[in-house]
């Protein structure tokens, strides 16, 4: 069902220096946004990256596209290492790697017409094309994403949120990329529009054989979109599994709590929900807890969890979890 290995990320770390304290010698503390993440992605696959605000999921997405420089680790794209690649060589790879942001209007230049916006990647990457050729490609792409090609001369503010997201998608797709990182692409949209965009993304994937990295905090959308899911907590992966396994047999207590917390649009089921609500807020990534980073909020935490950090271990087919007590979940 999925094809060749296209992306292989291993032990990726992205640390940002943050100045703490004041005076003449403020000390610098590393904010470990991404702290040792490994995963692979196959052609045609959709990998979901899920976690709460501040868990590092967007930084991970940007690091994969080489938009932030990783502190250490490796990113192999089609067998080529991206982390040490020269700028010019990297630019060449960018054609294949595209990004769609959450806020559709903010990611479009208000002073460009949507025709210009969608054509811009073509101008950058295939300057040899004639403008007539570009115009034709833009119009084809517009109708492909559900925008009327007559609207090329309009400006972003004339469009609704859902249409702006279609424009962003058209811009990302025009170079026929192989991987698109979708960073919360439907979170800002109304429910009825959200469904349209999800369907569009799936159709494009089927047509072009694209791979997606789908960053989201919405588990219902992830379940619908993704083949495989990584659950992140404070810069680390706590669980990774094929989508059905993750929702049917979650192993990590954090995953279990996340799934439990999603409100179900069904009054009887929602009110019959049992089990404790996950208490507390995620701790600051500047000062992550010792041992297992989830232990202060975990109902299963025991003495070991405070001192030793669990590593990802195989708990089933294609299913890994970083928890000492995962056996109690399955």
């Amino acid at each position: 069902m999925t094809g060749d290995l296209i992306l292989d990320v291993s032990d990726l770390k992205v640390h940002f220096p943050v100045r703490m304290g004041s005076g003449l010698r403020p000390n610098t503390v590393p904010l470990k946004a991404v702290d040792g993440i490994s995963f692979v992605l196959h052609a045609g696959e959709t990998l979901g990256i899920v976690g709460e605000s501040g868990c590092g999921k967007s930084t991970l997405g940007r690091a994969i596209l080489s938009l932030v420089r990783p502190t250490s680790g490796h990113i192999a794209w089609l067998g080529e290492e991206l982390t040490h690649m020269e700028k010019r060589a990297l630019r060449d790879k960018r054609k294949d790697l595209q990004l769609v942001f959450q806020d559709p209007l903010a990611s479009l230049n208000p002073r460009m017409t949507i025709g210009e916006i969608i054509a811009e990647p073509l101008r950058s990457f295939s300057p040899e094309r004639t403008s007539a050729d570009r115009g034709r490609m833009v119009r084809d792409m517009m109708s492909r994403v559900g925008l009327s090609p007559q609207m090329t001369n309009r400006y972003p503010h004339e469009f609704s949120g859902g249409q702006c997201q279609r424009i962003s998608i058209a811009r990302a797709m025009i170079l026929a990329p192989r991987l698109v990182v979708l960073d919360e692409p439907v979170s800002a949209l109304d429910v009825s529009i959200q469904a349209q965009i999800i369907n569009l993304l799936k159709d494009l994937q089927a047509d072009y054989g694209l791979s997606y990295i789908f960053i989201s905090h919405d588990l219902s959308v992830v379940r619908h979109m993704c083949d495989r899911v990584l659950i992140m907590y404070l810069g680390q992966v706590v669980e990774q599994a094929p989508v059905h396994t993750l929702f049917e047999r979650p192993a990590h207590p954090y995953t279990i709590n996340l799934i439990q917390a999603v409100p179900i649009p069904d009054p009887v089921k929602e009110r019959a929900k049992q089990g404790p609500v996950l208490m507390g807020d995620p701790p600051s990534p500047l000062d992550p807890p010792s041992g297992c980073r989830f232990h202060p909020r975990c109902l299963r935490a025991e003495a070991t969890c405070k001192t030793r950090a669990p590593v990802l271990e195989t708990v089933g087919t294609g299913h890994e979890a970083a928890c000492f007590r995962w056996r109690e979940s399955l």
Binding site: Q163, K202, L219, R223, P265
Partner: peptide, 27 residues
């Protein structure tokens, strides 16, 4: 339309291969 367009965690409405029944158009 609203109820049908929601992706769900429970039941099989949200099958990975299936499509959501979106309400066409915009408000």
């Amino acid at each position: 339309g609203l109820l049908a367009s929601m992706p769900r965690l429970t039941d099989d409405v949200g099958d990975k291969t299936g499509r959501l029944s979106a309400i066409p158009g915009q408000p």
